[in-house]
Design a protein around this nucleic acid. Sequence first.
DNA 1: GAAATGTGTAACGTATCAGAGTACAGTTTT
DNA 2: AAAACTGTACTCTGATACGTTACACATTTC
Lengths: 106, 106
Amino acid sequence: MSRMFNPPHPGETLREDILPALGLTVTEAAEQLGVARPSLSRVLNGRAAISPEMALRLEQWLGVENGGRADLWLAEQASYDLWQARRSFKPKIKPAIAAAKNTTAA
Amino acid sequence: MSRMFNPPHPGETLREDILPALGLTVTEAAEQLGVARPSLSRVLNGRAAISPEMALRLEQWLGVENGGRADLWLAEQASYDLWQARRSFKPKIKPAIAAAKNTTAA
DNA sequence: GAAATGTGTAACGTATCAGAGTACAGTTTT
DNA sequence: AAAACTGTACTCTGATACGTTACACATTTC
């Protein structure tokens, strides 16, 4: 299942795999992507998320046929976000089934 | 492919399927979920997204064994967000391959 | 018909976040 | 040494989730 490991921030993949494969510096990549260098740097180091817009940039930049599908980038990000949320947010909610069985009770 | 139809906002599913199946009003659902009624209403009517926290609330409320998996709610939301982003955001970016072939040129 | 309940939504405040721009310190490359 | 690259902090703008409050409208119940 997808819940057993700490999913990497997608920026990590970008920094460790994509950029080296393309032989590009952060500065060059930011220029080609049309974003500010600090903005890309934050993504690469996990300080900012892959936004839908950034995912579209990556898709057009890398090409859908080269593993650059926007939905995959967003899925990775969502996986990461959910993992983080599970660590810091513990809702205490009565299951709807149980709640339904106790409509009159409190 | 997942790009051929307009994906519904996950709140729509919640409003049209889940709540009726449980026989709950919006007010009751909001109470059980531990969120304000206007907040849930915004989600149900597509005015607000399913946040990671909200996804966790739904998961604990509905139960993972009842189609309430947080990752599925988030995936639906991401699908919706991406679709919307494709409509309003058209990045003009030179593909990295082409850019690599023209490192010297401008 | 009046009261209660449910609903959508607007308005406002708070917190958070993406992104641009700027600046600076530290490192690597030339 | 000089130039380039990098991470990061700071500020500003715009957007968003959420709470609270308030309002208008509808539906239900007495």
